[in-house]
Nucleic acid binder design. Structure first.
Lengths: 207, 207, 207, 207
DNA sequence: CGGTAATCGAGACGGTACGTCGTGTCTTGAG
DNA sequence: CTCAAGACACGACGTACCGTCTCGATTACCG
């Protein structure tokens, strides 16, 4: 589980690292963010809760956001092990997209994940380094699944061959993310379905 | 220009308020966020730079984010005075959308606005109250312009009548925002054009 | 009660200073040094005990030693108010010196004063600035009393007129201090008497 | 050269000890105290400079003061080898004392020795165990030289037979130390001479 | 048109957290 | 076993800001 290595003067020897502390820090960080939110979570608080010296956190991470990101990645890695290396492919692209987008809606609405995900995303919006890492490790792998499914659909003749899947997928995740991040309108299954319809067939009138 | 009024015990008498200080605070806030970023901008710093007592800030705003939001709204109000109460309507919907989206791309890429816009958006992602205000005062009015243009296109028979403009517009702004906030891919005019094409006509193959 | 003004960037406005805090800090500092010793007394501890922010200490003093010195001076000033502006002068120089030196022995042996006095002295040995202040405010005024008494004795013909009182007085306080600081031998009344005997006949006029 | 043995649970096997490390630690300790002072010298710093593990220091000494003391004793032992097992005895007590006291003044004023000597003395003032060791190993042997010379003077009839040499010697070293430690007045040869004059006639036999 | 009640600049205050440094203990691998 | 190296839990450092709280000194309404 690679970490956002601290950029300070001397690099510590990672072979001698305490796995026990690493785990305790992750657990404490996630728990605290869930309980009091990211803003009121402090490095000091994480250290205290993890039964760890502050220095042990600063030795391995440059900021509390980096800690949380690694904790989150660790969590996601655990969850990813058992499952979903690919989007469903029943042959019906619209149905498959509806399934996935509905699942995404449910996940985004799940209060357990909301706080840390929002915190991390917001931090990434403002901190390019952290954001890049967030995208590279978490977001892009997910988007790649969409791209793959769309490519399969192209092979099956369900999607225009001149369409760039990497761009097309944003028609689905872009609006969803927009609603969720900015809270402009409620995120519902109905919205997911509507989105699939619009994006798949466009909004222009047919002659 | 209404402020996010401080919610503390006694409401101050706004008629006696110093306009001079208000302006100085806005200027200082925007300047500091531009120079050192939102995170390293402090209320103390704003006060010092504005030549103002800290209490004068705390009297009128509940947080530095609220100050920045009002400063930003003030800025936007000034900019909005001269112009764009509506999206262009040349009769060619695709062309008009390309124009607008390209302009948006340019704006988002403008380093002058980047820091404060990102800061406010990120803050809104995490703080629902601030986010709501941000959306209500800044985002929704802009989205309404899209909705209006799409409704006109429906009247002209260029957009399917069963399409909900408020949802459809997210096909354009959603992906754009997604790229900008998360920095997944560069934001270019070519992308804006591609997006208009995809969203307008869908990605599904035609039989 | 002048303080060892902090040498940091901006000098605080001493007219707005909280007398309440000043007193609480002195009390806490003296209490802690008495209870756990100087080395294990911390600025943090003083602040906590005094119910004061750390910054309030750092605003007015550059180090814990400076705090303790001022606390000590404040104490001494309080004690000095009621009393001893001069050494006793019964006409019998030897007896008077014995009285004073015995009292000094008792004071140095008093466990209540021992810890802070040793701490302060040791700190002054190593920190010239603090030491100078210690000497100027506490030690020299006391030594001046000796000098005055010796001058009176010269006037009375009990001390050789060519003797420099400021040097002569060190024959008494030097050895006493030496024993106390370095703990070479026990400090007793007998020693005080012996010292007076030895030193006095060196400077006493011969008939 | 005996060390202030660490008092921890298991005593290490001193026969397997690295002489190389011991010397390196002494050198590093003395160098650091000379360069940055005792307070800012750290065990970690000594270890790093000596190219030694921290544990190697903690294995053999209980504190940095103890390390410095041993380093100092080691130094003094080297210096003592070539010389002065006794005070000069030309038959003229006053002259001999002046010689010795002037040499002491020079030594105390030597900036090379000032930092470590002050540091050790100050530490001994506050730490009775260390102080006792300092006195026993360094101070008392020197004082004994004075006592011996005074006894010789008594035998020669130059000093009153009822005088206790161990007390009398403090008339010389006490005031000198007082001036040096507390920096009340400059330490000069003239002062040394004056001191001898004052003190000596106090203890000299009367014709 | 002077009294008075507010806001204003300034900044001290009690706090919380920061990120760093040093302590003394413990562990690892080499000799 | 000792040693160099250094990670660890811990505690304190001195600093930066927080949001609250006095302080005069304007300043603008009101009687």
């Amino acid at each position: 589980m690679a970490e956002t290595t601290a950029a300070s003067g001397r690099t510590p020897d990672s072979t001698r690292r305490s796995e026990r502390s690493r785990r305790a820090i992750f657990d404490a960080a996630l728990a605290l963010v869930g309980e009091v939110g990211f803003a009121r979570t402090t490095v000091e608080g994480i250290a205290a809760r993890a039964g760890v010296g502050k220095q042990t956190i600063y030795r391995w991470w440059p900021s509390k956001a980096a800690v949380l990101l690694d904790a989150y990645l660790d969590l996601a890695a655990g969850a990813a092990e058992d499952g979903e290396a690919a989007l469903p492919d029943t042959g019906d692209l619209a149905a498959d997209l509806r399934t996935v987008l509905r699942a995404t809606v449910d996940e985004l609405n799940d209060p357990r994940y909301e706080a840390p995900t929002r915190a991390l995303t917001a931090e990434g919006v403002v901190d390019p380094v952290l954001g890049a890492r967030f995208v590279e490790r978490l977001l892009e792998p997910q988007l790649e699944l969409y791209a793959r499914r769309l490519r399969a659909a192209q092979d099956a003749g369900d999607v225009r061959p001149d369409v760039d899947p990497r761009v097309a997928l944003e028609l689905f995740v872009g609006p969803l993310t927009h609603r969720w991040l900015l809270r402009t309108r409620p995120l519902t299954h109905a919205y997911a379905d509507e989105l699939v319809g619009y994006a798949l067939h466009g909004i222009a009138a047919r002659p």
